[in-house]
């Protein structure tokens, strides 16, 4: 094997092959050629530095990380639930405001389900209620 051949192999061989006396034929060439051995050594040395960095364990222990993750996940879940409640509360607030502003008594008019062709289709998995207000121009549609 010539040095050119060996150096071509140096570019793509497994790291285990880059040691003198490693798998043939590259290992045999490296054992007898100081120049190529030096090049292989540089590739190996750089790889070992990065390998050592990858092997560095995290500073915090697994137990502490797991506990912190559990707590953070629960907080995130709670926050998500709060946000999903906001649209329902907002819709309820709109109904109340409309009823009060209209001057009608704050006792809500009983909701009436539209029996004929529905005004709106409920999104999959949800229900829809249609409220009439004292003002015939205003109808409140509430999905829940």
């Amino acid at each position: 094997m010539t040095c050119d051949d060996a150096r071509q192999l140096l570019l793509t061989a497994d790291l285990a092959e880059l040691t003198p006396g490693g798998p043939m034929p590259l290992g045999a060439h490296l054992a007898g050629c100081a120049d190529c051995r030096a090049l292989a050594g540089r590739v190996l040395a750089a790889a070992r530095v990065v390998q050592a960095e990858r092997d560095r364990p995290p500073r915090r222990a697994a137990g502490a990380l797991a506990e912190e993750a559990r707590r953070a996940a629960r907080a995130r879940r709670r926050a998500r639930r709060r946000w999903t409640a906001v649209p329902a509360l907002a819709a309820a607030a709109v109904v109340v405001v409309l009823l009060v502003r209209d001057g009608t008594p704050p006792i809500p008019i009983p909701p009436r389900t539209v029996e004929t062709t529905p005004l709106v289709d409920a999104p999959p998995g949800r229900h829809v209620a249609v409220f009439e207000t004292g003002n015939p121009a205003i109808v409140v549609v509430w999905t829940f």
Binding site: E53, P57, P58, R59, R60, L65, A66, E67, A69
Partner: peptide, 30 residues
Amino acid sequence: QALVERWLPRMHRWVLGMLDDPDEAEDVVQ
């Protein structure tokens, strides 16, 4: 916790390989 203990070393290495920044890697692992 046992699942985390089992996979944390590998996961940490993956993240180090992806980011090459130990400080940020720990945050990403979390």
